[in-house]
Design a protein around this nucleic acid. Sequence first.
DNA 1: GGCTATTCCCGTATACCCTACGAAAATAGC
DNA 2: GCTATTTTCGTAGGGTATACGGGAATAGCC
Lengths: 258, 258
Amino acid sequence: MTVRHSGGGQPERTLALLWRNQREQVRRTAGRRPSLDVDGVVRAGIQLADDRGLDAASMGGVAKALGVGTMTLYTYVPSKEELLDLMVDQVLAERQLPGPGEPRPTDWREQVEVYSDQTRAMYERHPWLARVSTVRPPVGPGMLAGREYLLSTLLPLDLSPRDTNTASLAITTYVDSAAGLLAENDLVERATGQSNEAWWYDRNDLWETYFDVERHPAMTAIWNANGYQDTVREAATDAYRYGLDRLLDGIEAQAKTL
Amino acid sequence: MTVRHSGGGQPERTLALLWRNQREQVRRTAGRRPSLDVDGVVRAGIQLADDRGLDAASMGGVAKALGVGTMTLYTYVPSKEELLDLMVDQVLAERQLPGPGEPRPTDWREQVEVYSDQTRAMYERHPWLARVSTVRPPVGPGMLAGREYLLSTLLPLDLSPRDTNTASLAITTYVDSAAGLLAENDLVERATGQSNEAWWYDRNDLWETYFDVERHPAMTAIWNANGYQDTVREAATDAYRYGLDRLLDGIEAQAKTL
DNA sequence: GGCTATTCCCGTATACCCTACGAAAATAGC
DNA sequence: GCTATTTTCGTAGGGTATACGGGAATAGCC
């Protein structure tokens, strides 16, 4: 199954849910007293997705975890789609990113590092995030806080406003997807109970039967020179660091020429 | 639904399917004559996913498109999972990347550009690709050809074998995810019939009711300086180019210092 | 205490999804 | 024509989301 996002629905309702903790609640008057609240439903969804994968966070699954009927959830959340939006913004907001005026490293690269570390840790805690589309994301407090922080780290570079925005988009794209990949790697190992190395070993036939050395000289050369890391995890971690560092190098160098 | 990948199954069977066109077929002997072939099933799946989204490429949907019963597909493909693997490797192989010895640009950056352009075009044609996990991908001819080409573009830099591999992983991560994002953006516009601008317009309440200028000074500054591009598409395209160029800048600079 | 309007709870039903199983149909070679 | 083999696919079982509507609980008012 694919995980899509933020359809049409009623944008006002969704926004009200996303920002539910920013404004105070209206006092209740008549009617049966609710047995749950939105936060509880969202927490249960996150918990389930963390523990047993995104598929476990079905409406039925979440309802069972909360000890209510499936349809009861629809009192709190318009659809599974918005529940997912709420789960996403919730975990985005978990990142501990300094707000405006709060203490932070002086070097801009170290500030970006904070974003990178926090985002990686978030994906590590919630690997199902990598499975959720980020186009038309839930524009809640969590997402806005992340964007705000990353933009603010780039201000010292004195790029034009437009370039600052462009650079920040490039960085989020890289960090979010690479961090998601790392987390997914770990998740798959846990979920299947099979290490990545065992997975490759199972595909020994590839090299023995199908791989054509003539057609793949560069791969062969790297292999012969022992250029492949010992583990998939190691390779992915190295690539993450290397790519982020080179990207920031490039941004820094270009900023200096202006 | 999430889109997962390459489970346990029987790796040999999956490999044989992925590389089915590299080795010739065994002659058939007795038994009822098949009405379809694997290529046809894969093509139908791709067609359906292209036209009506990944969800339309269900086993039932593909079978109906081919005019057979749903269960008939299981003669050709062990499960939906492997069908997806086959679809993915098929479209990966569609990229026109020069093989070893074939003509290519002289500058290494232009060579990487070819990879970037071909990959972007691939995602444009098959936006559902962005929805499919790339951990434990189908190791078929298409994937291997892509990896081989990208590695070969980096050889002129004379990095160590390990660094070459690391750099190539960083580039694929960036290119594939950023290209996927671009394509997904277009897809969502087509699928929902709502432009990204209209989507944001629907969320006007965000700025009017919830957005706190005090908490988001950097965003506010960029907004006031007119730093946000006119369209989401423009911003994403700019970010793609900018990020790739800066990443390659960084790689080039580092290669020179060695 | 009883009425009423309001709100919440959730069983049922519909419409999808994947796929295990097994019976029927078609074919090649003897 | 018989047999071994292969393909076809209906049925059934267990999953998913959610529309609908009836019943249950509550606050405020008389």
